[in-house]
Design a protein around this nucleic acid. Structure first.
Lengths: 250, 250
DNA sequence: TAACTTAGTTGTATTAATCAACTAAGTTAG
DNA sequence: CTAACTTAGTTGATTAATACAACTAAGTTA
């Protein structure tokens, strides 16, 4: 922060935001999870005007007294709807124009979040609005405001980051097998991947580690459990994931 | 737009934004060009409080009466400083918190723009603020507000998009040689590229076309001039640009 | 006309994805 | 007990793009 001199102090003391016409400003979230082998997004049914009764992205106005920053607003809204405290959270672009909200010129800051499906039991917690997970293929054709556009932006960002980064570990619990991780990628991308290439990439990226002696048991050969290396954050690759011929899924 | 019923009409008629405390909302631009073989960014020296005298990104408040949308605000600000009407313009993420502006809780929408250096003669046009191009290596260590962070975000976005897309044609005039385009990539990325790989990529991407019979003359072998195919927009590649050993530049 | 400079091409080596086939290690059905 | 089944994980040949170096092409300049 710069030093505020007397001259600037005088300026600030007579500055009043209410002298100016400013837009409404909100935060909206595209919250992803994978359940039942499909990529799903959380929507809420609006309980108040405008767009009452319409499905919308979770979000709302910045509370300038409670929220330290935009991310705090996003986390607060996310926690209200899902109970999740520490999701993967990333800013999208902003949106704003004269017509998106009938109340007037308005802007919104898009965010996208990833949460593992094992953490989201508490949906329908607080608030009067109904919240519901929608598979991407079953999203209502019209959403409130310009939320269809924000959602499309989030989906596009998710898919493009999945091609090049280790992002999707955030859709899984802290322990998982390589097959489970590969399955997440296939569901999000909607196409099948090559097992050996996928595993080579993970080895080279060096962001996962085996959990010694821990295996996922089932009705077949047990699988080694992995976790993220604590020191490694998101890893970026210099090449997109490949593809295999075949149906694709999700 | 949805149909507004009587009930909603009543709600809207009694809604007053001034009943709520809202943040300040602005738009800030990271405007890039390449001049003198270096990547440069436009900064303005603030003529008013707060941060009077400090270097800052060009930008300002949304004028809800003049601007249709955020992009219009960004284009207006860009034109005021550079005279350029149709730059390549792309939204960055937003920024907002309680402390970035001493006037109070404030938010800003980041944008990044590319303009060819042959178009930017008119800088220093209107306004009382000094505007100046800074090579990336000579940016003042402290900028107004959180503009250093926004700038870093713009640089990072530019560099990552350059690896995977045909974005940089927007830094050149409408006609250019492949060597000139490759040089732009090298300056922005700060490393040398392989000529044959670069040219193969362009051929495969199929977004440029030869201008028949047009060549750039100089004191050596003339070079074929190219232009963007009118039907093609930005092309994305599935792999990052390679690198060559050697000094790099920019 | 030879030296110089930049444009543009060609060919080999390396690397990572592609594809298919294989082995490994458990459970389940008979 | 054992064969069938399923999923885990590995191996090796093929393909495609980059990495690197050397080459040819076509102009200007001394």
């Amino acid at each position: 922060m710069h030093a505020v001199d007397q001259d600037e102090q005088a300026f600030l003391s007579q500055y009043n935001i209410h002298d100016y016409e400013v837009p409404l400003t909100s935060v909206d979230l595209v919250i992803f999870t994978v359940r039942a082998e499909t990529l799903q997004v959380l929507l809420v049914q609006r309980g108040e005007h405008p767009y009452r009764g319409w499905w919308a992205l979770p979000g709302g106005f910045i509370d300038i007294h409670r929220d330290q920053d935009l991310e705090a607003t996003a986390l607060r809204k996310l926690q209200e709807k899902t109970g999740v405290l520490s999701p993967y959270l990333e800013p999208l672009q902003g949106f704003g124009n004269k017509t998106r909200d009938p109340r007037g010129w308005s802007t919104t800051f898009g965010y996208f979040a990833l949460i593992p499906s094992d953490k989201l039991e508490l949906v329908h917690g607080a608030g009067t609005e109904a919240a519901q997970w929608f598979p991407l293929s079953a999203i209502p054709t019209s959403l409130a405001f310009d939320h269809a556009e924000i959602l499309a932006c989030g989906v596009s960002r998710l898919r493009s980051k999945v091609e090049y980064s280790s992002l999707l570990v955030h859709l899984l619990p802290s322990q998982f097998t390589l097959s489970e991780l590969q399955r997440m990628h296939e569901i999000v991308l909607g196409r099948t991947l090559d097992k050996s290439a996928f595993r080579k990439r993970i080895k080279d990226g060096d962001y996962l580690e085996e959990i010694p002696g821990q295996q996922r048991l089932g009705s077949n050969r047990p699988a080694q459990l992995y976790r993220c290396r604590p020191d490694k954050s998101t890893v970026y690759f210099s090449r997109a994931l490949g593809e295999r011929q075949g149906s694709g899924s999700g």
